[in-house]
Amino acid sequence: MDASARAEAPGRPEISLRAARPRYGEKIIKGLLVLAAFVSVLTTTGIVLSLIEETIVFLGDVPVGDFLFGTEWAPLFNPPSFGVLPLVTGTLVVGAIAMLVATPLGLGAAIYLSEYARPGVRKTIKPILELLAGVPTIVFGYFALTFFTPEILQALFGNSIQIFNALSAGIIVGFLVIPTVASISEDAMSAVPQSLREGAFGLGGSKLQVTTRVVFPAALSGIVASLVLAMSRAVGETMVVMIAGGLQPQWGLNLGQSMETMTAFIANTGKGDIATGSIAYKTVFAVGMLLFLITLVMNLFSIRFVRKYRQVYE
């Protein structure tokens, strides 16, 4: 008996499996959601394309080897010099100092909140910590320049610290990214199933052993993600490094002196009245492209790491 014959069999009411009415709302919502997803994709694509375009023009004027491996950055001088390494080291040094500050403090706060704090304490402290992330970075910048450098660093180390210096900028950027590390790491550790903690306590583990040997490794992928995100923020941070770190490129590692970073150079050059199409204008894009590539590599690394070490409990 074929399907149509069966449907028409006597005594059986007719069955319709079609929708009672078309679901237009469903289609509209779907369209809006697709649009929302594509706006960010298109923005990223547009940024990359504009960077690439100007960077190609720039590299037509300046040999790529001189740009990437030169150690003197003086694009506005006469004769100009386009060695970007001092900006790269400035950026990486500030980022490294920031992470040296943010990693222990941020992870310490995360471990305390997730494993040691009573629920009431956690509910109070975590929002305050996250509030720190909402303070505008320019406030951090002036805090570094007008308080941290003169009152703390110069009081401790005297004349070896100049008023614009990489150390102050790096430390304050570190404070700036503590909430990023603490909040995401705390989420990752809180997500570790309680059954794992119980298992470890049941074997006679102390609180510290359970935390460091079970909870921390189980949350490692989230913790590393928080650190990479913090590093990306530190490398991309502009205001603090421009205000407190100064604008003097340095090919060296003297932390007491000014060290211009890539972001500080871009912001400072972009705010001046430089002519569109001039060589100074093009350097902004070339440095921006390089910065984009550095953060891209860091993000790719973090995605791979997180995928490799992600634990699925179940």
Binding site: L196, G199, G202, L203, G204, R213, A218
Partner: peptide, 29 residues
């Protein structure tokens, strides 16, 4: 808890190797 061990309702191995799961207790003690 060193003297009185516990096995739970749902198996709760640590996200580690079989060897490290067994070695966990002896190591922490």
């Amino acid at each position: 808890r060193k003297r009185i061990g516990m096995v739970f309702q749902k198996p709760n191995p640590f996200p580690k190797s079989i060897y490290d799961n067994i070695a966990f207790g002896p190591r922490v003690l």
